[in-house]
Design a protein around this nucleic acid. Structure first.
Length: 244
DNA sequence: CCAGACGTTGTT
DNA sequence: GTCTGG
DNA sequence: CCAGACGTTGTT
DNA sequence: GTCTGG
């Protein structure tokens, strides 16, 4: 699956790789974790890096607790109520939803060993950044009836409302030969040529892109358990360690 | 009709 | 064990 | 994903 | 919002 990843490429490289006019707000991350505000490229405003919380909350959720979906299964993403609107790029009134690319240059998997849980980092063999298939949605927290909130939040019914929360999830599928040694699910990695179609294609076309990424283009290596703590967001967590 | 759920992973 | 926070 | 908390009353 | 269960 994918519950932690990295993205620490130079801003200019990121802009060039994903055809971005702006990477404003981008900060290199060695240990990106759920609930954090992270960089994505959405089907709307794809020329600008967007920042959303990792953990999708559907527009109809009554509270944040109804969301927090950090992964969505590729096999059912077109049907599940929580993801269907985003997958089909259907807005809910003023609240938008759609597909996105989640840029990364590695992700982490934890595997059980006799010595405990060992984290691994998975990257492309050439160490280049890549895109994971993602979905995003806007969510409006329920407004309290004090009147103060309505004043503080302006009109209260526009997508640009400061109260609107933007969240995303990462699509998962069965693992390829590299990742199956570590786990039985993995993030969908889109070949670069499929990225535009993930953002712009029909639902049928998008569904067809959720396939295995070739294992011969990926590698994995063990890293320190320092990566376990999301607070350790520093270069040390991507360094290879020797087991034994 | 209304009420209630709406997810994934891993583990048992 | 289970939930919340990052 | 892992780490860390896991409570109440009363008072400021 | 939309679907399923009663």
């Amino acid at each position: 699956m994918c519950g932690r990843y990295s993205l620490f490429v130079p801003p200019n490289d990121l802009a060039e790789r994903f055809d971005l006019r702006s990477v404003e707000g981008y900060e290199p991350r060695y240990n990106a974790a759920p609930s954090q505000s992270l960089s994505v490229i959405a089907d709307e405003q794809a020329e600008t890096l967007q920042h959303m919380e990792w953990g999708l909350i559907p527009s109809w959720a009554d509270s944040r607790d109804d969301g927090g979906h950090i992964n969505a299964r590729a096999e059912t993403v077109a049907e599940k109520a929580s993801f269907r609107a985003a997958f089909r790029q259907e807005d809910d009134g003023p609240l938008a939803a759609g597909r996105c690319l989640v840029p990364a240059n590695g992700f982490y998997e934890w595997t059980e060993t006799d010595r405990g849980t060992q984290p691994y980092r998975v990257t492309l063999s050439d160490d280049e950044p890549f895109a994971m298939a993602g979905l995003w949605a806007q969510w409006q927290p329920p407004t309290t009836q004090t009147g103060l909130d309505a004043f503080a939040s302006g009109d209260g019914d526009e997508a640009g409302d400061p109260d609107v929360v933007e969240t995303f999830t990462i699509v998962t599928t069965e693992p390829n030969a590299v990742v199956e040694k570590l786990h039985h699910r993995m993030a969908v990695i889109l070949p670069e040529d499929d990225e535009e179609r993930w953002l712009r294609g029909s639902p049928e076309e998008a569904q067809s892109l959720l396939e295995l990424f070739p294992a011969d283009r990926m590698r994995s290596y063990p890293v320190s358990t320092a990566v376990n703590d999301p607070a350790n967001d520093s270069p040390e967590v991507v360094e290879e360690v020797s087991l034994g």
